[in-house]
């Protein structure tokens, strides 16, 4: 199979989906939103196909460089969006999800294809579980962040009594809050499982649970942010505006631990996120 053509098809479908959702935001015709969803689903099918062929040909999950990791991030975001779209029927989330998926995917294509160098590390089932849960978790938390942003926009409209462009286009505060909360519960659960599996795997490979690698530290920090948010929600009913702001802050910290650490600090996760071709004398 021609991989370049496949990448192109996925990118085009994701971008088209973004365009349709964008026009939907202005025109509010239901057909546009349906077309956006269908295009995204089309892109997702090809994307899945790519990941599967890659898995079969190398025998393990294709996450050994930044290009593939980002591609996986786009894929899981799309998957989680479909779930949220059907579970909570928030059509308008597409205006957040489609550009997110398209951008992450296109950025991933701009990183070089670097071959894996420690293949043995990638062959464990522990790693597969670690990667999948962490990615599903991060994608859910990304959706929670999106719901939080939309919540703040809608809330501002109602509070300031100006309403404006988004007022009629966004769903109720209650619905946005519920969606954000669902994203956080699922994201946090998956993320927690992912971290635990990661620690156990670290124990198996490097014979210690934590090595105070920067990525571990920052992941821990983002885990704490979400833990605090959930605790407050359950204990004193933190909801609405505060919950939305926390969901956004949590995701920013999470993104820093995913990307910021990769570019600025290095560490043993570098193997998953190689983005520079290693210098060979």
């Amino acid at each position: 199979m021609n991989m370049d053509a496949l990448h192109g098809a996925v990118a085009v479908l994701y971008v088209m989906s973004t365009l349709f959702y964008g026009v939907y935001l202005f025109k509010q015709k239901d057909g546009l939103q349906k077309a956006g969803l269908a295009l995204m689903a089309g892109g997702f099918v090809f994307h899945t196909l790519f990941i599967l062929t890659e898995c079969v040909s190398i025998g393990y999950l294709p996450v050994y460089n930044l290009r593939l990791t980002l591609s996986m991030a786009a894929w899981s975001s799309a998957a989680v969006y479909f779930w949220i779209r059907y579970r909570y029927r928030i059509k308008v989330m597409g205006i957040y999800a489609a550009p997110l998926v398209a951008c992450v995917y296109i950025i991933s294509l701009n990183f070089p294809e670097i071959p894996a160098h420690a293949a043995e590390l990638f062959k464990s089932v522990w790693l597969v579980v670690h990667v999948i849960t962490v990615f599903i978790g991060e994608a859910s938390l990304a959706m929670a962040c999106g719901a939080g942003i939309l919540y703040l926009i809608q809330e501002h409209g109602i509070k300031s009594k100006k309403r404006g462009f988004f007022y009629s286009r966004l769903p109720s505060l209650e619905q946005l809050d519920a969606t954000g909360y669902a994203g956080i519960v699922i994201g946090f659960t998956a993320f927690t499982v992912g971290l635990i599996v990661g620690l156990v795997y670290a124990k198996l490979v490097w014979h210690r649970f934590a090595s105070w690698d920067p990525k571990e530290i920052w992941s821990g920090i983002s885990w704490l942010v979400y833990a605090a948010l959930l605790h407050e929600r359950i204990a004193v009913g933190w909801r609405g505006r505060r919950a939305a702001i926390m969901a956004i802050i949590g995701f920013v910290v999470l993104m820093f631990s995913f990307l910021g650490v990769t570019f600025l600090m290095g560490g043993h996760h570098g193997g998953f996120t190689q983005w520079q071709i290693p210098y060979k004398p």
Binding site: Y167, S172, L173, E174, Q175
Partner: peptide
Amino acid sequence: ELAKKIFGD
């Protein structure tokens, strides 16, 4: 209408 935008249902 406003109540619906706040509470949904």
